[in-house]
C-alpha cells in the first residue's frame, strides 16, 4: 500500500527532473536535438519544479512530516541520478522516460486513492 506512495513520489520526481533538464539549454539540445524557444523552456521549468514540490505531498502523507521530507529528498536524489545518467548515455530516451513517469503518476495516484 505504501508502495503506491513510494512509486508516486518516484514518478513525480522523474517527471519533474525530465522537465527540468529539458528547460536547461545544454540538456534540451541533447534531448530535442535543437534548442527549444525560451518560453517553452520556461514552461518546462515551471512544470518541473511544480512536480518536484508535488512529490512532497505523498511523501508527507505516507511517512509523516519529518520522515516524509527525508524520503522526499532521498527519492529526489535517486531520480536525479537516474535522469543524469540517462542524459549522459541515452538522451533521446528522455521522451520515453517522461511518458512513463507521467503514466506512473496517473497510475499510482489511482492506486493510492
Amino acid at each position: 500500500m505504501s508502495l503506491a506512495f513510494d512509486l508516486l513520489i518516484l514518478a513525480l520526481a522523474l517527471f519533474g527532473f525530465c522537465a527540468l533538464s529539458a528547460s536547461m539549454e545544454r540538456h534540451a539540445k541533447q534531448v530535442f536535438g535543437k534548442l527549444p524557444p525560451s518560453e517553452a523552456r520556461k514552461r518546462y521549468a515551471i512544470v518541473g519544479w511544480v512536480a518536484l514540490v508535488l512529490a512532497l505531498l505523498p511523501a508527507i502523507h505516507a511517512y509523516g512530516p519529518s520522515t516524509g521530507i527525508a524520503v522526499w529528498v532521498g527519492i529526489l536524489a535517486v531520480s536525479a541520478t537516474g535522469v543524469a545518467l540517462l542524459l549522459t548515455y541515452r538522451p533521446r530516451s528522455l521522451h520515453f522516460t517522461f511518458s512513463i513517469a507521467l503514466a506512473g503518476v496517473l497510475l499510482t495516484t489511482l492506486m493510492g486513492w
Binding site: 505504501s2 513510494d6 511517512y63 520522515t67 532521498g74 536524489a77
Partner: peptide
C-alpha cells in the same frame, strides 16, 4: 520503514 533507510544507504 525500510524505504528511508535504503535511501540513506544509497546516499
Amino acid at each position: 520503514s525500510p524505504v528511508p533507510r535504503w535511501l540513506l544507504f544509497l546516499a
